[in-house]
């Protein structure tokens, strides 16, 4: 529901990721973080929910 609301507000669904990772699954955690980082990097920068401190 949180993802749906963010998407409803105009946030790109591809920037959101939900995974179930046990504290014992260190390698899965690393893989997921890598995967998300690559995916989000490919999407480029966003101004949504990114505070502009230059103002």
């Amino acid at each position: 529901m949180m993802g749906n609301l963010l998407e409803h507000m105009g946030v790109d669904r591809n920037r959101l990721h939900f995974s179930w990772i046990s504290s014992a699954e260190a390698t899965k955690f690393v893989d997921v973080v890598k995967e998300i980082s690559d995916k989000v990097r490919a999407l480029g920068t966003t101004k949504k929910f990114a505070k502009d401190y230059t103002k």
Binding site: H8, G10, V11, K48
Partner: peptide, 14 residues
């Protein structure tokens, strides 16, 4: 109605 907008318009709406 909001859901029918494209993502940028939705963001602008909010």
């Amino acid at each position: 109605h909001i859901a029918s907008m494209d993502p940028e318009t939705r963001w602008d709406h909010f």
